[in-house]
Amino acid sequence: MGADDDEAATELVDFSFPVSTDRLSLDARMSHSGVHVVRGSLAPNEGGEIGATQLSAVVHKGEPFEMEWRLPGSDRLHSRRIEFGDIHINPGDTPFFQRWTGRPLILGMALDHALIDRVGQETFGRGGSSLQTLVGIRDDWLMAAAKAWREELAAEGSGGRLVAEHMGVLLAIRLFRRYSDAAWRPVPPKGGLGARRLRLVIDYIEAHLGDDLSMSALAAVTGLSLHHFGEAFRQSTGIPPHRFVLIRRIERAKIFLLTTDMTITEVSFAIGYASQSHFALKFREMTGVGPHRFRLDRLT
């Protein structure tokens, strides 16, 4: 544990790459629109400057392990036992000295600089550089977010860009509110989107149900920022944009199933799902039956 430990090469993990690195072995990964989520394990680390190219919030999901670290710009060595549910936050491109034992199991949530800076500037007037590096914190909101991401990983990212961007923006807002020196700026205008903007965005959704819709595209239709759009849409409709799109896709699927000879696979592609299995899963969640049974029960 001498001073020469810091001389190890600097390492930046890129969460957007689909292959494992020497540091990170992946069990599952998902990337959409600057939002990246990985589940896997980290190799033992004898000491070195380590960080990520993106802003990252990493949740420890395995057995406890011992860790030592020095925060960026500090000579003070910290040491503690990292437990299940402890969370590490680090702005992108900000490596710091770390050393640990074992092979920690993690779920990592990462945001590209463009997304984190956009949300930060639009909502707080600050970029991602205002966020702190923190090790071993507890945060119930981030734990709930990690659970939601774990479920999305299990579904192989079937929610697509819209769900990923929605959850990514919420993650960015949480990090800025709780872990930066940025002051909160005005909330979205009262009254939601207003009749004209709401009609514009609903018309856009209806015309593009078969596409991989994104929060960025929907927000652009209204001329609002990502965060303000999501909040205003919920205020106007009572549900977030990705939920609204899911409902409309399932309703469109019902029409196709009852009025056309399209196969289940053709229906799934027509409403924006990449596979029949993901479509069938969402259809059953929404209706209580699979698409094939739904068609048979109503046409026989």
Rank of each mutant, 00 (worst) to 15 (best):
G120S: 03
I205R: 07
A144E: 07
W149V: 07
M167S: 12
S180D: 11
A207H: 12
A217M: 06
E156L: 05
T222S: 02
A232L: 13
L193M: 05
R174D: 05
G120L: 10
G230R: 05
W149F: 14
L200T: 13
A183I: 08
D203H: 15
V163D: 02
F176C: 09
E122R: 07
A220K: 06
T133Y: 02
L198K: 00
G194V: 11
E206S: 00
R197Q: 02
A195Q: 01
L218P: 06
G136P: 00
P188A: 01
S158C: 08
V163L: 15
A155P: 02
L171G: 07
G194R: 09
M167R: 13
V119I: 07
A182T: 13
L213Y: 14
M215T: 04
M143Y: 06
Y204I: 03
L170H: 05
R178N: 15
Y179G: 05
M143L: 01
G210S: 06
K190F: 06
G191Y: 02
R185K: 14
G159Q: 04
R138Q: 14
A148M: 01
E231V: 14
S129T: 09
I205W: 04
Q132L: 11
E156V: 09
G127R: 09
L131A: 13
A182F: 14
V201L: 11
Q121C: 08
F124T: 05
L209I: 04
A155S: 12
H166M: 11
R197I: 02
G159A: 00
T222C: 08
L131S: 10
R185G: 15
M143K: 04
V163W: 13
T123Y: 09
G127F: 06
R197V: 10
L226E: 00
W141H: 04
Q132Y: 01
G192R: 03
L200E: 15
L224E: 11
